[in-house]
C-alpha cells in the first residue's frame, strides 16, 4: 500500500486548473494553425484572431476563453493507494476554489433552479475509476457550456448499427451549427448504459486531440465521422469553410444485446485538458 494525502491531490488539481485556463494544448494549437492555412475570408480571420488570442492570453496571463468552464476532474486511482487526509471530493473542490480565485477565472457554476452562483466554481464534476497499481492520475478538463449545451445522447437500436452512429454524430454537429464555437472537437461514446455512454464521450475528449482509437473499427468511425462533418461546410465560427471539426474521438464499451447507446459530447476549439500522474 502507498499512502497519498489528499492535500497532494488538491495541489495537483490547483496546478492543472491554473495551467489549463490560460493555454491551449500543443496539438490543438497546431490543428488551428493548419486550419488557418486552409481557410479564407471571414473563417481565416476568425482563426488568426484565435491564434493571436492565445498569444495575448499567455503574455497577459489571462484565461484563453472567459468561459473557464465547469471543472471536470477525472481521477484514476490505483487499488494499492490509501487516501489520507480530507475526503477526496473536498480536496478536489479546494483545489478548484483556489485556482479559480487566484487565476482570475470566471465562476460559472450556479443552482439550476434559482440560478444563484455558488461563487467559487464548485462543486467540480468528479469521476473516479479504481484501477491497478499505486499511482493516481488526475485529469482536469474545464468544460465551457457553449459547446456542452450542444451535446446529445441517443439510444439507437442494434439494427441502426455503424451507420446510425455516424448519422447521430453528423446530426449533432448540424443541429449545433455555429453555436458551439466551431471548429469543434467531438467526443463520442459508443455502448455502455445511458449514463455510462455519456461518460465515455466525455473521456474521449481527454485524449490527445486527433489521436486515433487503438481499435481499427473505432478509429475508422472517427475518421469517417470527421470527413462527413467537414463536408457540411459550417466552418470556423459558422462563417463557412472546410474546418467544422478539428477531430472526432470515440470511446467504446460493451452494451446490452437490445441497445446501441451513442453520446456526442461537443467541445469547442478551445481544448484545455491537462493531466498529471502522482
Amino acid at each position: 500500500m502507498r499512502t497519498v494525502c489528499t492535500k497532494e491531490i488538491e495541489e495537483c488539481v490547483y496546478r492543472l486548473a491554473r495551467r489549463a485556463g490560460v493555454r491551449l494544448t500543443d496539438r490543438c494549437r497546431a490543428l488551428l494553425k493548419d486550419a488557418e492555412a486552409r481557410e479564407e475570408g471571414a473563417a481565416k480571420y476568425a482563426l488568426s484572431t484565435l491564434l493571436e488570442n492565445e498569444e495575448i492570453a499567455i503574455r497577459e496571463a489571462m484565461p484563453v476563453c472567459q468561459d473557464t468552464g465547469m471543472s471536470c476532474v477525472l481521477i484514476e486511482l490505483g487499488n494499492e493507494v490509501f487516501l489520507s487526509g480530507m475526503p477526496l471530493a473536498d480536496a478536489v473542490n479546494c483545489g478548484v476554489r483556489r485556482a479559480y480565485a487566484d487565476g482570475n477565472f470566471r465562476k460559472s457554476v450556479c443552482d439550476p433552479l434559482t440560478r444563484k452562483n455558488t461563487g467559487d466554481n464548485t462543486p467540480a464534476h468528479l469521476h473516479v475509476d479504481i484501477g491497478k497499481g499505486d499511482s493516481v492520475t488526475v485529469t482536469f478538463l474545464p468544460k465551457g457550456f457553449g459547446s456542452e449545451n450542444m451535446s446529445l445522447l441517443r439510444m439507437l437500436t442494434p439494427a441502426e448499427g455503424r451507420e446510425g452512429i455516424l448519422r447521430t454524430v453528423e446530426e449533432a454537429v448540424r443541429i449545433a451549427g455555429s453555436r458551439p464555437c466551431p471548429p469543434v472537437v467531438v467526443g463520442v461514446g459508443i455502448g455502455g448504459t445511458f449514463d455510462g455512454c455519456a461518460l465515455l464521450a466525455k473521456k474521449a475528449l481527454t485524449r490527445e486531440v486527433g489521436s486515433r482509437h487503438p481499435r481499427a473499427d473505432v478509429a475508422a468511425i472517427e475518421e469517417e465521422a470527421l470527413a462527413r462533418i467537414n463536408a457540411i461546410g459550417i466552418g470556423p465560427q459558422g462563417f463557412g469553410g472546410k474546418t467544422t471539426a478539428l477531430a472526432v474521438m470515440a470511446e467504446i464499451a460493451p452494451t446490452h444485446i437490445a441497445g446501441l447507446p451513442v453520446a456526442v459530447n461537443m467541445q469547442c476549439h478551445c481544448v484545455r485538458c491537462e493531466k498529471e500522474v502522482l
Binding site: Y45, E52, P63, Q66, R106, C181
Partner: peptide
C-alpha cells in the same frame, strides 16, 4: 470570435457596473 476571450478583454479599456451586482459575472 468565440473563444478569443483574452483578445476582447484586453481591448476593453473601461468597465463600470451598471446593474444587478448579485449576478456577479
Amino acid at each position: 470570435i468565440g473563444g478569443a476571450g483574452a483578445f476582447y478583454g484586453n481591448s476593453i479599456k473601461k468597465s463600470e457596473l451598471v446593474a444587478f451586482p448579485d449576478l456577479l459575472s
